[in-house]
């Protein structure tokens, strides 16, 4: 059962991941991702009914810190690496669409 990712799926994923992809690259990536997914198909097919998922190797719980103020970065440190700054803030091109 070969996994075949369509170019449309690849473009959708690229959009979700915010990666600009040319038409040519989309085809190429579709092939590569299909090959990788094909390889993991055996795992997908395993019957693991009743086996719990491990999302974390540790069994720690309730790691909490005290509600105490720590020093902040200076404005220079905060903005120093920014590609564009205006008025003490990070400047970005216009935003189409609202916050999700």
């Amino acid at each position: 059962m070969a996994v075949e990712l369509t170019v449309a799926e690849v473009r959708h994923v690229a959009r979700l991941a915010r990666l600009e992809l040319s038409a040519e690259e989309s085809v190429h990536v579709a092939g590569q991702l299909s090959a990788i997914l094909d390889h993991v198909e055996a795992v997908r097919a395993l019957d693991l009914e009743g086996i719990p998922a491990t999302s974390h190797p540790l069994e720690l719980v309730n790691v909490l810190r005290a509600d105490e103020v720590r020093p902040c970065l200076t404005r220079e440190e905060v903005l120093g690496g920014a590609p564009a700054v205006e008025d003490g803030r990070f400047a970005v091109p216009r935003i189409l669409g609202e916050t999700p």
Binding site: E20, A82, P83, V92, P93, I95, L96
Partner: peptide, 24 residues
């Protein structure tokens, strides 16, 4: 790594395009 706070930025018409071009 989206071109907003640090590191590389490749400009775009809008923020989504800027993000996508920067990351590509």
């Amino acid at each position: 790594y989206d071109g907003v706070r640090y590191g590389l930025r490749v400009d775009g018409e809008d923020v989504e395009q800027m993000n996508a071009r920067t990351r590509a």
